[in-house]
Structures are given as C-alpha cells and as structure tokens.
C-alpha cells in the first residue's frame, strides 16, 4: 500500500497480530500460514494476563507424552467469546487448532479449542 496524501492510513488487522505498538509481543515466531490441530489431554489452563495458556499433553512420535504450551488471548476478550476460567479442566480430552512455532518447539498460538462435548471456543481471529 502506498501512502498518499488525503487518504486515511488504515492500520487494519496487523494491529491485532503484533506488528504494532499495541501488541504485547511479536508473533513472528509462529507460522501463521500453516495451522495444525493437536489432540490431547489438558494439563492446565491458565486464565491470566497478558495471555492465557493451555498446557496440553500430546502423544509424541515415539509414544511419549509431550507437553505443549499454547498461548491464547487475555481473559478480557476471551470472556467475550464465551470462555471462563473453568472452560478447560485438567484431564479433559480436547483438540485445539493452533499456529505452531516455526522452530519446531512444542508451542503455538491458539485459534480455537474443541471441548469434550463437541462445542468450540474460539480465540483471536486469524489474520
């Protein structure tokens, strides 16, 4: 986009995804072009600021349990999407769609979670 006089400079969705001063941190470490789905068992759900975190055990390639850390939105806007501190309980079998870390570490940014009853909780809208 070329910036022109007499035209509004629209910041748009990039504001949400951390390329602006508004963001808590950059999301460049995450592969936002290739979402993946993890299925596993909830270890812990931290409904906290500046981000919520879902800790989930997922089967690894050799059958071992791998703990993934999935970063979510802050409680102020998660609550506006139907989340509560008790949305995810330890032991729950869930699947979650995420943008994974580019470097292969077991982490990512949450897009949505499918709960044991099949209902879906959404997080930050994709870019």
């Amino acid at each position: 986009m070329q910036v022109r006089d007499c035209a509004f400079i629209v910041f748009g969705m990039s504001l949400v995804f951390a390329t602006s001063t508004s963001a808590h941190h950059s999301t460049a470490k995450f592969d936002k072009e290739h979402a993946i789905v993890l299925s596993g068992t909830v270890k812990e759900f931290q409904y906290t600021n500046p981000h919520s975190w879902l800790q989930i055990y997922v089967d690894g390639n050799n059958g071992e349990q791998v703990e993934w850390g999935i970063e979510g939105g802050s409680p102020n806007f998660l609550k506006r999407r139907g989340w509560t501190a008790k949305s995810l309980q330890p032991g729950d079998k869930v699947s979650t769609r995420i943008y994974p870390m580019r470097d292969g570490q077991p982490g990512g940014i949450m897009i949505e979670v499918t709960l044991p009853d099949g209902s879906v909780l959404t997080d930050i809208p994709p870019p």
Binding site: T48, N49, H51, W53, G69, S74, N76, K79, R80
Partner: peptide
C-alpha cells in the same frame, strides 16, 4: 461480558 476487566501484564508473562 463487555464490562472492563483488570489487566496486570506482569501476572503471568511467559
């Protein structure tokens, strides 16, 4: 659901 909430960034900054 739209009421303002607390935001303490240092609460759980990972």
């Amino acid at each position: 659901e739209w009421e303002v909430s607390e935001y303490v960034c240092a609460q759980n900054n990972r």
